[in-house]
């Protein structure tokens, strides 16, 4: 209980500082901070369309955030969600390329997740076998994925009628909005359900327990028959599952394009937003869920801030950057 209160307090402090400094930056640059914050934080809640849009933004961030959170539990700094999301999206595009009916949907889910898991296996095995630091391994794989997916989308999977993107999901295989005229698709409840499942996994499953033990203290784990390498592998695998799902959903459940942009614009940066969500949510799946909703609201609010007050959306990035900074400092202090 005390720990929960303390981490809420710390998170609240980081948020408060980020918003105060953001306000100062706005004020210096000649924008009204109060009106800006009002548009940023309240307008998204004032209208169902806007709220659903915010939730739609939260879904992929949540899924990549879970990747990082599960990694943290296993004592890993797994920043591979970015590349695994690309691979997930690539799997969905491959499915769209292979079949043109409803079967593309399950195939997309399967291929996307399979690609992502395969992608994460490389840094995981490098770490286990050769002791390669997972940060190095995953960054490397992120970049390889970036160029590989761009190449695939520019060549085999290119859309002949729309050169800026890949082939589209067949209409029958798309997850279209649950409420017409909004962005709320099945992706949102699916992502939230995933967070709950991950919570159950970490809290109640034997493997979740083993991951926690070997993440906190691999020596203890080893002494009592838990193999940290297996825990690393499982944590990487679970993380890739959610990151891959994020990539798949960005293709099959994100109107209007239902495709992967040639410059990866609809998956780029999701992995890193996920790290923010995971840090803000203190690595707890439900915390990450709340954090991703918050980040979704920020992203939705950015547009209303621009329209209603004329404040540039870059201030959202300033605030997010400051937030990460303060959260990271808190983490550092603990170490």
């Amino acid at each position: 209980m005390r720990r929960l209160a303390l981490s809420l307090l710390n998170t609240g402090l980081a948020l408060f500082l980020a918003f105060v400094l953001g306000a100062i930056a706005m004020w210096i640059s000649g924008y009204d901070p109060l009106l800006s914050y009002k548009s940023m934080l309240l307008t998204p809640l004032s209208d169902l369309t806007y709220l659903f849009s915010a939730l739609a933004f939260s879904a992929p961030i949540l899924l990549t955030g879970l990747t990082f959170a599960v990694g943290l539990k296993a004592g890993l700094f797994n920043i591979g969600a970015e590349g695994q999301t690309y691979m997930g999206a690539l799997g969905a595009v491959a499915a769209a390329y292979l079949t043109r009916d409803v079967s593309a949907l399950p195939l997309a889910a399967f291929l996307g997740v399979a690609f992502a898991v395969a992608w994460s296996a490389i840094p995981a095995l490098l770490k286990i076998w050769r002791g390669v630091n997972e940060v190095v391994g995953t960054i490397m794989m992120n970049w390889v994925a970036y160029w590989l997916v761009i190449m695939a989308v520019s060549t085999i999977f290119a859309n002949p009628s729309q050169p800026e993107e890949s082939v589209k999901m067949p209409e029958a295989a798309r997850l279209t909005p649950l409420v017409a005229g909004t962005d709320l698709t099945l992706a949102v409840p699916l992502a939230y359900l995933t967070a709950v499942l991950i919570y159950v996994f970490l809290r109640y499953s034997v493997w979740g327990y083993r991951i926690s033990i070997s993440g906190q203290n691999p020596t203890v784990a080893k002494a009592y028959g838990i193999r940290p390498e297996q825990a690393v592998l499982v944590a990487f695998g679970i993380g890739a599952l959610t990151a891959g799902l994020a990539g798949v959903l960005q293709v099959v459940a994100r109107p209007p394009s239902y495709s992967l942009a040639r410059n990866l614009a609809n998956v780029y940066g999701l992995g890193f937003d996920g790290i923010t969500a995971a840090m803000l949510g203190r690595g707890h799946p439900i915390g990450v869920l709340l954090a991703s909703v918050f980040l979704g609201i920020l992203q939705e609010g950015a547009r209303h801030m621009q329209i209603e007050v004329g404040t540039p959306f870059e201030f959202i990035r300033v605030i997010q950057g400051l937030l990460i900074l303060f959260l990271a400092l808190q983490m550092l202090r603990k170490i």
Binding site: A56, F57, D183, Q250, R254, S257, A261, A265, N266, Y268, G269, Q299, A302, R303, Q306, I307, G310, P312, F313, I316
Partner: peptide
């Protein structure tokens, strides 16, 4: 009124 886009979405 100008509106910038952070991502494709």
């Amino acid at each position: 009124k100008e509106v910038q886009s952070k991502t494709q979405d």
